Simulated assay, not measured.
Amino acid sequence: MKRIVFIVVLALIAGSWGGNLWVYYNSQLPEPVFFKHYIEVENSPGYSFDLNYLENKSAKVKIQSIRIPELPNATVTPILVQNSYVHQNQGTMRTQIMDYDLLQPTFPEDGPLVIHRVEAVFDDNSTKELEIGEIRVYNDLLKGDSPIQSTSGGSSSENAGYTRVKFTKDTVITEISSAYLPGLGDRLTVILEAPSIKHLEQSEIQFGSETTHSGVPLSQIPFPLKFKKGDTASVTYKFDPLQNADAMAKSEVYRFLLRMELQLDNGKKAAYPIFVQSDPYLSQREVAAIVKSRRSGS
């Protein structure tokens, strides 16, 4: 009788151990995965961006840094644990454009330098190329001397932000654009407050718990817009939360530039960037869904 009880106990222990092993196995990423990034940056000292990724806590080898061969003038500061989940850590590779005269990217003749992969460097000195989404690096984004001064700005944890500017010369805004605006559609709201369009129908963006910004939606602005020296304007944006999207879509990172195209009275052209940013805050359930998706190969 004792022998039978002993065998039953062993079977229960083995079953429990096997079940735990199965759960653990299915909670592991096949390899580290970077979020899908949509980044625009000027090839100019001081510009920076973060590349976020998920990695198994129990991985035998872990990412220590990254290399971006197309950006020899960039430095990388690893933040190996930005957020912690049950089986994974979220890390960040903070990348900054530096002023290295002898090390500069090679740009195509038409358009920006576009980067889709980075070289992950692991703690055993092995390397592997991993997809990161897209980084668009511009060499001539800030052409000319801008007749604009930034007077204030801010952002919130609700993926909203604003920039208020003052014009130092008579100026015409001919366009406000970004490579990523068309793909975002209704998910991103951008409004402009300016003296010459106060008569048009205004929309509102709630910024924080107490502040409301008003302006005309970007799609309804009758460009070109004229500004006198001393005029002010403000651009406010807000990303709508993704309610029914899958976890991979919710992990998308946006850090791009709304580009104000400007024309001065003397005919010269210039540009001014408005920074737009949306960072994901993933739940444990969403991280588990990403793991499941990667394990299934989708």
Rank of each mutant, 00 (worst) to 15 (best):
E201M: 11
D50H: 11
H213I: 04
Q206A: 08
M93D: 01
T92E: 07
R255Y: 10
A271N: 08
V235I: 11
E193H: 06
I115D: 00
F227K: 02
G154F: 12
R255C: 04
P105W: 02
T92C: 15
N56K: 01
P217T: 01
T168A: 02
K60D: 13
Q90S: 13
S177L: 04
G153N: 04
V287S: 10
D110L: 12
F207Y: 15
P78M: 05
R67H: 00
V5L: 15
I39C: 07
G154C: 06
A289Y: 02
R136M: 14
E109Q: 14
G144H: 08
S157Q: 07
Y254R: 02
P30R: 12
E158A: 10
F239K: 02
N56R: 07
I68H: 10
Y237L: 08
Y38Q: 13
L192K: 03
S293M: 10
I221Q: 08
Q263A: 09
N43W: 02
S150T: 14
F223T: 05
Q263G: 04
I173N: 09
A233D: 10
E193D: 15
N52H: 09
K228P: 09
G111S: 06
I66G: 01
K60Y: 06
I148G: 02
P108D: 03
T127D: 03
I197V: 12
K292R: 07
V216I: 07
V8N: 01
T163C: 02
P273Q: 02
N89Y: 12
D124E: 05
R295W: 06
K169Q: 13
D231T: 08
G91D: 05
L21V: 13
G183S: 13
L225W: 08
S251G: 12
F107I: 15
T77H: 12
K292H: 11
L218W: 11
Y24W: 07
V9Y: 01
T92Q: 06
E70K: 15
H87V: 03
A179E: 14
Y100I: 14
Q28E: 14
L262I: 04
Y24E: 07
M93G: 07
T75I: 15
G208K: 03
T174P: 04
P45R: 10
K128P: 00
V137Q: 06
S234Q: 13
S219I: 06
V287A: 06
E261D: 15
Y138V: 03
S156L: 12
S293L: 08
N56H: 03
D124R: 06
K229L: 00
N26S: 04
N56M: 04
L282A: 09
E40Q: 14
G133W: 13
G153K: 02
D240R: 13
A288N: 13
R3I: 10
S84G: 06
T232S: 04
I176W: 05
H213M: 05
K128M: 04
Y254E: 12
P273E: 02
G185F: 05
S298L: 11
K62S: 14
V253I: 11
K128H: 01
L181K: 05
T95C: 05
N244W: 10
K250L: 10
Q28A: 10
L184D: 11
Q88I: 00
A247P: 02
D186I: 15
Y237D: 05
Q243H: 08
V76R: 11
L262E: 04
L188E: 11
L200R: 06
R164P: 08
